[in-house]
Amino acid sequence: MKPLLEVKNLTMAFGGIKALDGVHLHIAPGQIAALIGPNGAGKTTLFNCLTGIYTPTSGDILLNAPGGKTRRLNGLKINAITALGVARTFQNIRLFGGMTVLENVMIGRHPRSSSGILGAIFRPPATRREERDIVDKSYALLESIGLGDSANELASNLPYGAQRRLEIARALATEPRVLLLDEPAAGMNPQETNELEGLLTRLQAAHELSILLIEHDMKLVMNLAENIFVLDYGEEIARGAPQEIRNNPAVIKAYLGEEDDAEAQ
């Protein structure tokens, strides 16, 4: 099966430092994959390249739409990539704190709606319908992540775990094919992480999503991901099913260090 998202030989250099060096990655349609690695391995840099925040120095990021058309994402604007169906959440939560929970999700409908200035002023039936549709779809999404009751609260007043879920709902509102989650379980307690696991499985099935997640919680990663990519110092050191990764000596070395190192100190 042709992968939905393909990253080929991707290099991202900041001056002389290569944050990413020849990274390969692919996600099949409907697959949950994980990207792991020690701090500073280049995981978030890869996300930033995928979503257009950085333009990669070299290499290709290809999105294969189901129709067979392939789009190269390098150098596209952030919003254009979102419109093509790649949505993300952020490691440090970036909600629109001054807007209500519902409005946060409604912003996500932006690339899937079209009314302009004249539509806003004259509010023809088409715009009214669209606005109705935005509210209804956003509310349905909120219900599906269990935040329906807080729809009219300010996003900044939500508890931490709910804010993380709201970020996911906001990203889902853009109707992505690929969802990139940057440490969705960071700062959550085991109970919340458990719920998150269930939620992601449910959402993945309901929206026919492919998910790529960065996560440090190994239990979550091992339970969810079918395929794991391990980065260290910008290079891919391992890939494979959870079981293979768990026993991979290179991965253990990257995470725990070598015994020689420990003795040398």
């Binding site: 949505a87 952020f90 629109f96 807007m99 932006h110 539509g119 806003a120 990203a171 853009t174």
Partner: peptide
């Protein structure tokens, strides 16, 4: 009317967080 429209929401989102707003598909 502008304020309570798709465009008005995009403006407010832009004010709140420029990067997140673009990531939601708003053309900055």
């Amino acid at each position: 009317r502008l304020q309570h429209s798709r465009i008005g929401r995009a403006w407010v989102a832009l004010r709140e967080d420029e990067l997140a707003c673009q990531a939601m598909g708003v053309d900055k």
